[in-house]
Amino acid sequence: MLPARHRLRTGAEFTAVTRRPGGARAGSRLLVVHANLTDSRAARPPRVGFVVSKNVGGAVMRNRVKRRLRAQTARLLSTLPPGVDVVVRAQPSAADATSTQLGAELERLLASVVARVGTDAVGVTAP
């Protein structure tokens, strides 16, 4: 589980990340990652939220995918710059992916969106 200070909680926070101008989005067959950086959060820790719809599968499968994504994100959290908010949306094919595949794809997509929101994160390089 991610610490509370690193979690997006409300629908408004998710909407702000996915729809606010100046953000970035990168996608693949497994995941879509949105990122946004605001000046008001520049000194705060990065926050992450997950969206796993019913298209991914039943409740057991959705929770499994969320757990895998949380574990992979926790591993990468220290590489995200302060103030960045990230939303990770699972595609239906994520249900068939292994944790290693999800982790590799998440790392690649995070590097891409972080580079495009105009930040220079330590440990995350754009492909």
Rank of each mutant, 00 (worst) to 15 (best):
M1W: 08
H6M: 04
R7Q: 08
L8V: 01
A12Y: 03
E13C: 10
F14W: 07
F14G: 02
F14P: 04
V17C: 10
T18K: 13
A24H: 12
A26N: 01
G27P: 04
S28V: 06
R29Q: 10
L30Q: 04
V32C: 14
H34P: 10
A35Q: 06
N36S: 14
L37G: 03
L37M: 03
L37P: 00
S40I: 11
R41M: 11
R47E: 04
G49W: 09
V51N: 06
K54S: 15
G57K: 05
G58R: 07
A59H: 09
R62F: 09
V65C: 09
V65Q: 09
R68Y: 01
L69G: 09
R70F: 11
A71N: 07
A71E: 14
A74I: 05
R75H: 09
L76F: 12
L77I: 15
P81Y: 02
V84L: 07
D85H: 10
V86P: 03
V87K: 02
A90M: 07
S93R: 13
S93I: 00
D96M: 13
A97I: 12
A97L: 12
T98I: 02
T98Q: 02
S99M: 10
S99Q: 12
T100H: 11
Q101F: 02
G103C: 10
A104C: 13
E105P: 01
L106W: 06
L106F: 08
E107V: 02
R108F: 04
R108N: 00
L110W: 02
A111D: 09
A111V: 01
A115W: 09
R116F: 04
V117M: 10
V117T: 12
G118L: 13
T119V: 15
T119H: 11
D120S: 15
A121K: 03
A121G: 12
G123T: 12
V124D: 00
A126T: 12
P127H: 04
P127L: 04
P127Q: 05
